[in-house]
């Protein structure tokens, strides 16, 4: 089992572009481990991404892969899923890609409850463009475009996705890779829109600029700042400041969009046949 996921890689395109110690590798590992565990048919898996460091992942994966434009992975994936619902369509996106430029698509895909699995590689920064702040850079932190500290509030993207109508919402950090795999597994097994936020880390830009040390120290910071959703329920807003709430945050069983569309086709054809 240990290296089973290697068969899902395209080794001929390695080495990958990620920096040593980048958290994206851990999230990708969790994703592949899950796909291996579920024994998904490679031919029926489609991985779609936008633009950013995280979004470079599909190129290295031996599935049907699509590296699209910045922020637009979800609508491309929507076209694929609706046209061929039997495909397992997984979207890989960054916090900038998915929560800034692609935020509106995220809302509407969740609202439709279309059967995509979206994994957001949240490294709290724009990595690919060298460290500008993203909508998920915590207030007060430094970025190249927030040299005096970020005065914007970072938002809780999981709450956004839940409120928009998704069937599954969870968050884990890269300091808990097994938990992350478990959530991705449940996301893939969810009928309807499923979202996993993987709180990761970018040592090169976010870590260095905010003096958080190297990858190992950053992992420690992640561990220290994490509270489970159950523990968080007992804490005051003051105590929760700066904490990362992990766990399965929401689950529902609402009808999936492509299923609804198939019913619509039946209806339309019955009407036409009469």
């Amino acid at each position: 089992m240990a290296n089973k996921f290697e068969e899902y890689l395209r080794p001929q395109f390695m080495p990958h572009i990620w920096c040593p110690g980048c958290g994206h590798g851990i999230t990708l590992n969790a994703l592949l481990r899950t796909i291996a565990k579920l024994e998904l048919d490679k031919d029926k898996v489609c991985v779609v991404s936008g633009i950013g460091c995280a979004s470079r992942a599909p190129g290295y994966l031996d599935f049907n892969t699509l590296h699209t434009t910045h922020g637009r992975a979800i609508p491309f994936a929507t076209g694929i899923k609706l046209a061929k619902p039997e495909l397992e369509v997984i979207v890989v996106t960054g916090d900038g890609d998915g929560a800034a430029i692609g935020g509106n698509h995220l809302i509407h895909a969740a609202r439709r409850n279309i059967g995509l699995t979206v994994v957001m590689f949240n490294n709290s920064i724009y990595g690919m463009t060298s460290g500008q702040y993203s909508p998920m850079t915590p207030s007060g932190k430094s970025a190249t475009t927030a040299p005096y500290g970020n005065i914007e509030r970072d938002f809780d993207v999981c709450k956004l996705v839940q409120a928009s109508g998704a069937n599954y919402v969870a968050r884990a950090t890269v300091a808990q890779p097994r938990q992350l795999s478990t959530y991705i597994e449940r996301a893939i097994n969810t009928k309807g829109f499923a979202f996993v936020e993987a709180q990761g880390m970018c040592p090169t830009y976010y870590g260095r600029r905010n003096k958080l040390g190297g990858p190992v120290e950053m992992l420690d910071v992640l561990k220290k700042n994490t509270v489970t959703v159950q523990a968080a329920a007992k804490l005051s807003p003051e105590e929760l400041k700066g904490k990362i709430i992990t766990g399965e945050l929401y689950q529902a069983n609402d009808p999936e969009y492509c299923d609804l569309y198939d019913n619509l086709i039946k209806q339309a054809q019955e009407v036409a046949g009469k």
Partner: peptide
């Protein structure tokens, strides 16, 4: 933007 993206996605499946 999304409509154009969805059309490309669906065409990739052969539609």
């Amino acid at each position: 933007i999304a409509s154009m993206a969805a059309v490309v996605g669906s065409s990739l499946t052969g539609a």
